[in-house]
Design a protein around this nucleic acid. Structure first.
Lengths: 153, 153
DNA sequence: TATTGTTATACTCTATAACTATA
DNA sequence: TATAGTTATAGAGTATAACAATA
């Protein structure tokens, strides 16, 4: 039994005692799971998390500046352009130049976008329900969201 | 006051009532923050989260199969090759072909790797302390890690 | 046939710098 | 001089398919 080849002696039990405590590690694993579930749930719609978030924000906040939405969602304005291009190309969102400051683009969800969002909401709910079930219920979800909020607020 | 240009009337108060509850959204924002803090904390070392995780796992589990480590960390084996290439190139980790199954590579942390890991641990701790402080203390951290674990275990 | 490690590849996400048009 | 949107680009992260060596 050569000491320099322990492959067969270790087996499948892995000591994770330090890593398992690391917040960053747990966050990455959890985020990966939830993200994949979202993508699979919306695979037929071709809607990605940022698309859905933009539609949700604009449905309650029509006319926000493009940069305001980007900042609110934690997306850099350079990377936000392609997201809005896609939504505008699908006629779900509209850019309108501000009349008081010709540099800014005001974003509006279209009527088609609102109707489409209504069809997306139950799909999103099925995704969220799956996540909440894994967490153990709505109270756990609220607690988790509260804790996560402390990290980025 | 044209109805089709609300940019100036909305102001900076954004209604987030639905998105703020979404677990996926909160996860992404929190993960982004913690990840960035990790990268900045380790910027002088050129160590990325997966590098650190591999060293930590191998320090307690010498001789694991390459695919076992990859799977334990939730990394696909194809993407894991470059990570080990990097660590092996820096002499922090060693591949040794198993003698009982010539297909498998056993991974070992080197003595230099162990010594280096000892210098990394306090750096990592300063990162983790910052995160725990934002969360409000160790109990909040434990609770958060427990909740996150339910999502990926 | 099946599995381990590997290569190649593509797509997404994120970051940075520079450009334009406006202010 | 500064700002909003845009373009271009580069770097990671992740996913899939296919291959060689071995079982």
């Amino acid at each position: 039994m050569p000491k320099d080849d322990m492959c067969e002696t270790v087996g499948p039990v892995i000591d994770f005692s330090d890593m398992a405590d690391a917040v960053g590690y747990a966050l990455r694993r959890a985020q990966l799971y939830v993200y994949q579930d979202f993508i699979e749930t919306f695979s037929a719609e071709g809607i990605r998390p940022p698309d859905f978030a933009v539609l949700m924000v604009l449905s309650r906040n029509p006319g926000l500046k493009q940069s305001e939405v980007a900042e609110a969602l934690g997306i850099q304005r350079a990377n936000f352009v392609a997201i809005i291009d896609g939504l505008e190309g699908r006629k779900l969102v509209e850019r309108r130049k501000s009349e008081t400051d010709r540099r800014v683009q005001c974003l509006f969800i279209t009527n088609a976008g609102l109707a489409y969002l209504d069809t997306l909401k139950p799909i999103w709910q099925s995704h969220e329900d799956r996540v909440v079930a894994r967490l153990g219920g709505p109270e756990s979800r609220d607690h988790l969201v509260n804790l996560l909020g402390r990290l980025y607020d």
